[in-house]
Amino acid sequence: MCGRYGRYTPGERFAGIIKGTVSTRFTDDVRYNRPPGTFQLIGLLNPDDGATTLGPAWWSFIPSWATDTKLSPVNARSETAAEKKMFAKAFAHQRCVVAADYWIEWSRDGDENQPYAIRPADGEPFFFAGIWSKASRLPDDHSAAGEVTFAILTAEPNADIAHIHKRQPQALTNAGARSWIDPDMDAGQAQEILQDERHSSYESWPIAPRVGSPKNDDPAILDRVELG
Results as ranks from 00 to 15, higher is better:
Glu147Tyr: 00
Lys70Met: 08
Arg77Glu: 03
Asn158Ser: 15
Ile131Asp: 07
Leu172Val: 02
Lys134Glu: 15
Ala190Trp: 04
Tyr202Thr: 07
Arg178Gly: 05
Phe127Trp: 07
Glu147Arg: 14
Val97Gly: 04
Asp218Asn: 15
Ser107Thr: 00
Asn174Arg: 11
Glu124Ala: 13
Glu124Thr: 00
Phe14Cys: 02
Met86Trp: 01
Ala90Ile: 02
His199Gly: 01
Ala15Phe: 02
Gly228Asp: 12
Arg13Asp: 02
Leu153Lys: 05
Gly55Pro: 07
Asn113Tyr: 06
Ala208Thr: 13
Pro209Lys: 15
Cys96Ser: 13
Glu83Thr: 00
Ile152His: 12
Lys215Trp: 07
Arg119Ile: 00
Phe14Tyr: 14
Met1Pro: 13
Ile118Ala: 04
Glu12Pro: 05
Ala177Met: 11
Ser60Trp: 11
Pro56Val: 11
Tyr32Val: 08
Gly16Cys: 02
Leu138His: 03
Gly188Trp: 00
Pro206Ile: 01
Phe128Ala: 01
Asp196Lys: 15
Pro47Gln: 12
Thr52Ser: 13
Trp106Gln: 01
Ser179Gln: 13
Asp101Met: 02
Arg224Asp: 05
Ile131Tyr: 05
Pro157Trp: 12
Gln94Ala: 09
Asp160Lys: 03
Glu226His: 05
Glu192Phe: 01
Gly130Asp: 09
Ile42Thr: 15
Glu124Pro: 01
Ala76Phe: 05
Gly130His: 12
Gly6Trp: 03
Thr80Gly: 05
Trp65Lys: 01
Pro183Ile: 00
Leu71Phe: 08
Gln189Arg: 09
Asp140Ala: 15
Gly228Thr: 07
Lys19Arg: 14
Ala175Cys: 03
Lys134Ile: 06
Arg137Met: 11
Pro214Val: 11
Ala15Gly: 03
Met185Asp: 04
Arg95Leu: 13
Ala145Met: 07
Glu156Leu: 14
Leu227Met: 15
Ala190Asn: 03
Ser179Tyr: 03
Asp49Tyr: 10
Asn75Phe: 03
Cys96Trp: 06
Pro47Asp: 08
Arg137Tyr: 01
Gln94Glu: 10
Thr173Asp: 02
Thr52Asp: 01
His165Lys: 04
Ser72His: 10
His142Met: 10
Ser78Phe: 08
Pro183Ser: 07
Ala66Trp: 00
Pro183Val: 00
Thr149Lys: 09
Gly3Arg: 09
Trp103Thr: 05
Glu147Gly: 08
Thr173Lys: 01
Trp58Leu: 07
Tyr202Cys: 06
Asn46Thr: 08
Glu12Asp: 13
Asp218Met: 14
Val30Trp: 11
Ile18Met: 12
Asn216Lys: 08
